[in-house]
Design a protein around this nucleic acid. Structure first.
Length: 423
RNA sequence: GGAGAGUUGGCAGAGUGGUCGAAUGCGGCAGUCUUGAAAACUGUUGAGGGUCACACCUCCAGGGGUUCGAAUCCCUUACUCUCCGCCA
């Protein structure tokens, strides 16, 4: 959520920046400013009425104490009028504040200057590419066929016990998953991130805090009887651990990592692009989250990008980095880098990580602040990134490492797997 | 599922109708002392709105009520804890 004061001060710049998202924000920003002015006017009137009322109350109290009940009763009548007035004003204020809040919820974050204009993924800007795309032998298969051939993943069994999009990992497939999780967590903790295990269900307040609610509840599974949501990413519980906190400047940065399953309803298309592991309702992910000083957040973002690069380099997977364009940028993000691994057998790029700086957008909703050296309370910046999303990494490994003899295991994973070949 | 007790400032924890935005402790900040640090001592320190700055207003879990006046009394919702039951 944007801050009203910032909108007031930077309206024109915000309109220009939001054009990159394909949004003409002129009208809504004007509406915000107008509602805010209305709010402040009403607030001032209410304050005045209450001040008068408070003064009278004190006088009445004093009169009663000194036994002048008759005079007190005269004043009492005055307060009745003031009470009615303040009731009306307070209702007005609530309505205006609610209206303002609703408007603010509809406005996405302001894209960073680096964000290219554009409408969809075709306008994303590739900023980096590394790794050789392997030349596969004849008869190379996509991962879902490999998974079947080597009995690593059973999609049909998942359908039987739950439904489409809930695969069952089996044998060396399950072991490889576990190895990846352990390897990712080790990489993250040795880079200084503190490991957490967090709940996989969150309450409504948490959904609001990170921006999944109120607009995107359809993307989350909702447990109605208890009014809880299955997490779509560890970002939600991890970031919300700090909701409402006021920390010391010296506590920053706060860095966390955690493994969780992720649940996404993603009612959408079915077909070739969502086959196998490409798109699932439940998948595993290791996440990194940083709470940063605003002066340091972009440096931290670069650091997170470098960190993910290192992991992909160690896995020896061909990858590229995209800077998301305005149209593809998430609602809460100011700048996002997507990582994609090349799936040789499918001949396409698969997104395996997304690293974003949300600046103060989430922190404003979360009321996540720090006390700076001048004693002022300021909103912190939040960032997060996947390191990494498991299914597509698995797909990338299966497809890129396949040989006629079997699937080789990336060197760095062998100690975690206990085997170096799936055959 | 049954019974009871709670929810107060960054944290812990007093406060049962006006003098309470709130004792005290911890933490934070500043200073004294010290070569420096620690300890000790002194001072200072809740948040939001509003203002050029004051004034002023709001906030003691959320919502409603009683009262001239509510952290304090009443109703209600949520959450937490303890005991019992069930259970990994």
């Amino acid at each position: 959520m944007l801050q009203v004061q910032e909108i007031r001060e930077n309206k024109e710049a915000y309109i220009t920046a939001l054009k990159k998202r394909g949004i003409d924000a002129n009208e809504v920003l004007n509406a915000v400013i107008k509602a805010d002015e209305q709010r402040r006017t009403t607030q001032a009137q209410l304050d005045e009425t209450l001040a008068e009322s408070n003064t009278l109350s004190k006088e009445i109290g004093n009169l009663f104490k000194s036994g002048r009940a008759a005079e007190a009763n005269v004043l009492k009548e005055k307060t009745t009028v003031l009470k009615e007035a303040s009731k009306t004003l307070s209702d007005d204020l609530n309505n205006t504040a609610e209206e303002l809040q609703k408007l603010l919820y509809t406005i996405p974050n302001i894209p960073n200057t680096l964000v290219p204009a554009g409408t969809d993924e075709n306008d994303n800007k590739e900023t980096f590419r590394e790794g050789d795309i392997p030349v596969l032998a004849d008869g190379a298969m996509p991962h879902w066929e490999l998974a079947k051939k080597y009995d690593l993943i059973d999609f049909e069994l998942g359908v039987k016990i739950t439904g489409a999009g809930f695969p069952v990992y089996k044998g060396k497939g399950a072991r490889l998953q576990r190895a990846l999780i352990a390897y990712f967590l080790d990489k993250n903790t040795s880079a200084g991130y503190t490991e957490y295990q967090v709940p996989h269900l969150v309450n409504e307040a948490s959904g609001f805090g990170t921006g999944q609610l109120p607009d995107k509840e359809g993307q989350m599974y909702h447990v109605g009887v208890d009014d809880l949501y299955l997490i779509p990413t560890a970002e939600v519980p991890v970031t919300n651990m700090f909701r409402g906190d006021l920390v010391n400047e010296s506590d920053l940065p706060i860095t966390c990592t955690g493994y969780t399953p992720c649940f996404r309803r993603e009612a959408g298309s079915y077909g070739a692009h969502v086959r196998g592991l490409n798109r699932l309702h439940q998948f595993d992910k290791v996440e990194i989250v940083r709470i940063e000083h605003p002066d340091n957040s972009y440096k931290a973002l670069d650091g997170m990008v470098d960190h993910v690069v290192e992991i992909l380099r160690e896995l020896e997977l061909p990858f590229r980095i995209l800077r998301l364009c305005g149209g593809d940028l998430g609602f809460t993000a100011a700048l996002t880098y997507d990582f994609e691994v090349f799936s040789t057998a499918q001949d396409r790029w698969l997104e395996i990580s997304s690293v974003s700086n949300f600046e103060a957008f989430q922190a404003n909703r979360l009321k996540l602040r720090f006390k700076d050296s001048d004693g002022n309370n300021r909103l912190a910046h939040t960032l997060n990134g996947s390191s990494l999303a498991l299914p597509r990494v698995l797909a990338g490994i299966l497809e890129n490492y396949q040989t006629p003899e079997g699937i080789k295991i990336p060197k760095v994973l062998v100690p975690y797997c206990g085997f170096d070949m799936i055959s």
